[in-house]
Amino acid sequence: MKKGVMRPGHIQLRVLDMEEAVAHYRDLLGLIEVDRDDQGRVYLKGWTEVDKFSVVLREADSAGMDFVGYKCVNEGAVEQLRQELIEYGCKVEDIPEGELNGCGRRVRFDSPTGHMFEIYATKEQTGKWEVGNRNPEAWPRNLTGMKATRFDHCLLYGPNIAGTIDLFREVLGFDLAEQVLDGEGTRLAGFLTVSMKAHDVAFIEHPEPGKLHHASFYLETWEDVLRAADLISMTDTSIDIGPTRHGLTFRGVRRWRLPLPGPRTGDLGRGAAGQGDLLP
C-alpha cells in the first residue's frame, strides 16, 4: 500500500578527501555542484533534477554512507510516517529545517541492517540545471564527464535484511520487486520499489552493518554507457564490474560501476561509487 513516499531524494556520503571526491563526482560523473555549506559539505545533483540537490559529500576519516533520504508527497505524510516509525520501534530523530541547505525538516530513523534513513517532503526547487522550464533547449551545453542525469538508487549491505525489508514494506509502503534466495530459502538479496522505477533501493545480506555497496546515477543510452567507459579508462578510474546484464529487476540492465568498493563494501575509494544503469 502506498504511504506517501515517492522516491529516493538524497544521499549523504563520507569521503576522505573532498578535493578528490569533487573531482570524481563533479568532473568525472558530471554531477553539478550546486552549493557548499559552513560545515564544508558539498551539494550536487544530476542536471535533470528539479530539486536543489541529491548528493551531499562530507569529509570524514572513514568512507561510507551517512544516510539516504526519501521524498514524500507532503508534510502530512511525513508526520504520519514519523508516528508509525516510532510505533514500529525505530529510533527517530527530528532534523530541523535548514540543517541541509534548502531542505525542510527531515525525520531520520535507524534500521535492522544498521543504516540510517530519512523522510522529508520539502526541498527548494531550483529547476533543471541551465535549461530551466521556459522554452528549454534539449540539454545544457556545458556538461562535463559522464553527464549523469540523476540519482537513481543505492545498494546497501548489512545483517538482517529481512528486518529492514519488512520495515520498508510495512511502514514506508515499498514493494518487493525481486529477491534472491539460497537453497534453503533464506533471503540473500531484496530489491524494492516505491515508484515506477525497477528498484529504488536494494539490500544484500552481509555481516557488517551499515555498509554502502554503491549509489547509482542514470545514463539514458547505451552510447552514454560506452562514453562513460572511455572516461573510466582515460582517467584510470577503479572499476568493479561492467558493463553487465543482470536479471534482477530488469532483464538487461547494463551498468558500469565504479570505482571498486572492494569486498569491504561501501568503504569506497574517494568515498565514491557511480554507476550508469541503462534500462533498455
Partner: peptide, 10 residues
C-alpha cells in the same frame, strides 16, 4: 587492489 582511494582497506 580495491578502490585505490584509501577507503576499502584492501
Amino acid at each position: 587492489i580495491g578502490c585505490r582511494g584509501g577507503g576499502c582497506g584492501k
